[in-house]
Amino acid sequence: MTQLSVLLSLPASITSGGNVSSGETALFWVLAPLMVFGALGLLFARKAVHAALGIVLVMISLAFLYTAQEAPFLGVVQVVVYTGAVMMLFLFVLMLVGVDNSDSLVETLKGQRWIGAILGLGIAAALIGVIRTATFDQAKGLTAPNADSNPVGVARVIFGQDIFAFEVVGVLLITAALGALVLTHRQRLVPRVGQKERADARVASGGRLAPLAAPGVYARSNAMDTPALDPEGRPIEESVSRVLRTRGQRRSATEVEAQVGGTSAIEPAQIEPAQIEEGTQP
């Protein structure tokens, strides 16, 4: 909320040509550590989503800094393009690839961690050295070029001297979009298998079309471990849970028959336990 009010009051209080107002100084010193923190999150976060959130933080803060630096147009574009589109795309891909795929931090390349750290620090040191030793002119500020508001000034350049580059970039974007389509396109090698195809296959293989029968319910026995009987009085072995059958905890129809009393049409030979072992499940 405070940031929003800062943003709204920016054009009045912070943008002041080449000079840096105290408001801008404050904004910078609030945002700069946040941005470094977010960037370090990218470097150290174990989960990719956290890294992405760190980058989002950096990018939104950058949008503030752009606005503070008399580039409100770029600030808006930064939010729309980077935070809105690019980072969302990143998050989508993260979801696609597997969000809980946390990166192991164990380094596999020998010495890479030291080399990377040294090079990173070296780059930082060299760049900061350059900036610290260089002398800059007194900042001119953009008051004059931004006289007709910043978007108008930027548009004059883009659609004026840079119009050709602009068109080329448009072509590039289209090419990239097409390229992405081509890259992610998957050739269909086998015909699509839908509900109808599955049903047809089941009928063709002669499998069971109706749901499995429930386990046996007899006058005196009402248990999961007893097979149901079909209309002809034969036990349906599949009706007993597969787990019970594998564990050998089912009761055979013969055992039950003894208690129930000869209602079944089965011959004893038909209900050998060997028949109802593994593999009878369709």
């Binding site: 080449g18 574009v77 795309l89 910043n150 883009i158």
Partner: peptide, 25 residues
């Protein structure tokens, strides 16, 4: 801002657009 020339902002704008294309690919 230092040079008082909008060309830098336009350049940044182009960088953004090209980066978008790059991200997609």
């Amino acid at each position: 801002r230092i040079h008082g020339d909008l060309q830098g902002q336009v350049m940044a704008f182009f960088v953004m657009v090209v980066a978008a294309a790059e991200v997609v690919v």
